[in-house]
Structure formats: C-alpha cells, structure tokens
Design a protein around this nucleic acid. Structure first.
Lengths: 103, 103
DNA sequence: CAAACCAGTTTGCATTACAAACCATCTTAG
DNA sequence: CTAAGATGGTTTGTAATGCAAACTGGTTTG
C-alpha cells in the first residue's frame, strides 16, 4: 500500500518549532517551572524563551503566572489542559510520521 | 536520570520544515520523481513546491535535472547522497526525540 | 549613590513560507 | 492564422517568524 506523506503537512506548527517543542516537553514532565529553570533546561536565550512562551500562551497551551519571591519577579509556567492534549497529539503524530518513514 | 530535551534544538531545520520533510520522504522512497508527481504526492501549490525544491537543492540534499519530454519541460528530482544521509539522520533524531518524550 | 546584578521584555533585522501572479511553450479551436 | 487554453514550472509580494542584542524596572552590593 502507498504511503501518504501529506499527513506531515498537518502538524501543529505552534508545537513543531523546536524552541517551543522543547519548552512543551519540559513542561509536560515537570508540570510547573519558572523562567530561569526553563532557561537552564532549554539552553535558549532569554529573549527567545520569552517570545516563545508568549506565543504558547497566546495559543492557549501554557498558562503564565507572575508572582514575586523575595521582592523579585518570578514567572511560573505550566501547560494548560489544551497544551497537554496538544502535546500528546503532537507526539502521536510524530510517532506515526516516523513509522510512515520507516524502510 | 534526567531527560535532555536540548537535543531537539539541534534538528536539521532544512528538513524539519514540513513542506520539505514531505518532499524528502517521498524522494527517499521513490528515488526519482518529476515535478508534477511531487505536486500530486505532496498536495502543495506549485510555487511552494518550487521554492522548497530550490532550497533543498541549495542545501545539497536534492539534485535537479531539467530535461524535455516531447518538447515540454520536465524537472526530475532525486535525493543526493548527502540528502539520503541527512534524511536518515533526521529520522533517527525524530525517533530519539519521540523516545525522550515518552511517559 | 553608583555599579552590578536579576528577571525578564521589546526591538530590529534577516529569513521564511506561502500563494497569487506571471512566464514560456505547446496544443487545440474557430 | 490567431485566440484560447493547457502544461510545467518560476518570480514576486507580503505577512509571519525566529533570533539575539539592547533595553527596562527593580534590587542588592560596594
């Protein structure tokens, strides 16, 4: 039977971007993380991390809570329900794509 | 042990773009294809297909041969050796990433 | 009080993806 | 012969994107 590669074109581009994927993946497993933790964990620059988080928030995939710890700003990020679902879906699509591309 | 998601950031962006990935995947299995075949197989617009092919050629992943069939232009595309290697590598990375993201 | 540091955001820019418009050539209709 | 349409693409215009440098607002240190 013939392989249909067109499914690949349907991936969730919001997650597909590597910078965002790594953020999503980290958040998926730690459940909540602050900005600096993500910074270390992802190895991105601050500006880059900030803008990707904003985009994920705009897309409804992460919730961002701004608090203070000892008078210092603190940004706590977690996946929303939609974000978890989207991540799981993306992961499945990825697996399916990998299978389709098997020899 | 801790998961290192940073590897995701190292993906080959030339292949990672879905439009290009689907082209690479098709070429990987058919070995050679003309423009119109790719057009049907990928479902992209002509302009889009054209520019992605150009980019893949510039990156050294596909070889493009322009011929004529019955006086009509005909563009034949195939993966270069580097392209095959890059595709296999990408596929492995994809698999590794999927594993890292497993629960 | 100045310098350095912390926790991020904004800005500027170069790159990109995309489809609409275009182009050259060939075939068919009138 | 010439207009209209098909064929096989490429170029152009534009909006969106990713990225890091520069900036901001506040805090601590010397």
């Amino acid at each position: 039977m013939k392989r249909d590669m067109r499914a690949i074109l349907q991936v969730d581009r919001l997650i597909h971007e590597p910078g965002r994927l790594v953020i999503m993946a980290v958040l998926y497993f730690v459940d909540a993380a602050d900005f600096l933790y993500l910074l270390r964990e992802t190895g991105m620059t601050k500006g880059n991390l900030s803008s990707h988080l904003t985009k994920l928030e705009a897309g409804g995939y992460v919730e961002i809570e701004k608090t203070f710890r000892d008078k210092m700003p603190r940004t706590i990020c977690r996946l929303s329900r939609a974000g978890r679902a989207a991540f799981q879906q993306y992961r499945e699509n990825l697996k399916a794509a990998a299978d389709t591309m098997k020899d």
